[in-house]
């Protein structure tokens, strides 16, 4: 038996509670799930684990029955796993599912919370823009103060948010020189700065190539001067030149 099970048993001393009424099979399933701590386990893997640990070969319907009874007794819960949302994943109520299962602060019910991310990104940008030069700590503290994220964001998670802003070319990473605008920041520390002349969420300036039909043409490799697709007969050109 795993050592975790012993620890959990101590934690959950509830004389006369529902666990007393557990069948052997229920207990075996519960033990396996508890042993997985905050990672939880797939329904289909439970059978294998029980076979390894207890040498019992439980049929699938029996396991389903145990799971149902454990859920109703409020000993385990079903969680969504971002890796494979279709599969049933169970975790003991003693644990909060780990970030690997939920995906972290930016996930809700196993899928990416795009609305919240957009809101957080705007907050990040506004704060960096207001401060002109911002450190990771300053942004993290500010974001957590706003209470927009459901859980407190770690520095790592804020860095991910800013990272996405950098990839969108709205913010840039700079190293403090310790002078001028960096006066309050130690030399060499990584800071963030908004790219001037670019409002948040604004479309970047279109390049010369991308602003003509050929630059965005999905058929350019089929286009030849006298072919079926040719610049003289091109529909994209016609559209572009149609004032």
């Amino acid at each position: 038996m795993s050592r975790f099970q012993g620890a959990n048993a101590l934690k959950r001393k509830r004389p006369g509670s529902a666990s007393d009424a557990l069948t052997d099979h229920d207990q075996a399933v519960l033990d396996v799930i508890r042993s997985k701590q905050d990672m939880g386990i797939y329904q289909r893997d439970i059978k294998r684990e029980i076979h390894i640990k207890n040498g019992i070969n439980l049929p699938d319907p029996a396991i389903t029955k145990c799971l149902k009874s454990l859920v109703t007794k409020n000993l385990i819960k079903e969680v969504k796993n971002i890796q494979s949302r279709g599969k049933k994943h169970f975790i003991s109520v003693d644990f909060e599912p780990s970030n690997e299962i939920t995906g972290g602060a930016f996930y809700n019910e196993g899928s990416l919370d795009t609305e919240m991310i957009a809101q957080l990104r705007r907050l990040c940008w506004n704060h960096i823009n207001g401060l002109q030069i911002a450190t990771l700590e300053a942004v993290t503290e500010y974001i957590n103060r706003t209470k927009v994220p459901k859980v407190q964001l770690s520095k790592q998670e804020t860095a991910e948010l800013i990272g996405a802003l950098i990839l969108d070319n709205e913010v840039m990473e700079v190293k403090s020189s310790g002078t001028g605008e960096f006066a309050s920041i130690p030399v060499g520390k990584v800071c963030y700065k908004c790219i001037s002349k670019r409002a948040h969420g604004a479309e970047p300036k279109v390049g010369a190539f991308a602003s003509i039909p050929c630059g965005v043409c999905p058929r350019i490799s089929y286009c030849t001067p006298d072919g079926i697709i040719s610049p003289k007969t091109c529909v994209y050109y016609n559209k572009w030149l149609d004032f």
Binding site: P204, V206, G207, A208, F209, A210, G215, V216
Partner: peptide, 8 residues
């Protein structure tokens, strides 16, 4: 220039 093309 390349990113602009990819974006579009």
């Amino acid at each position: 220039e390349v990113e602009s093309v990819v974006l579009k």
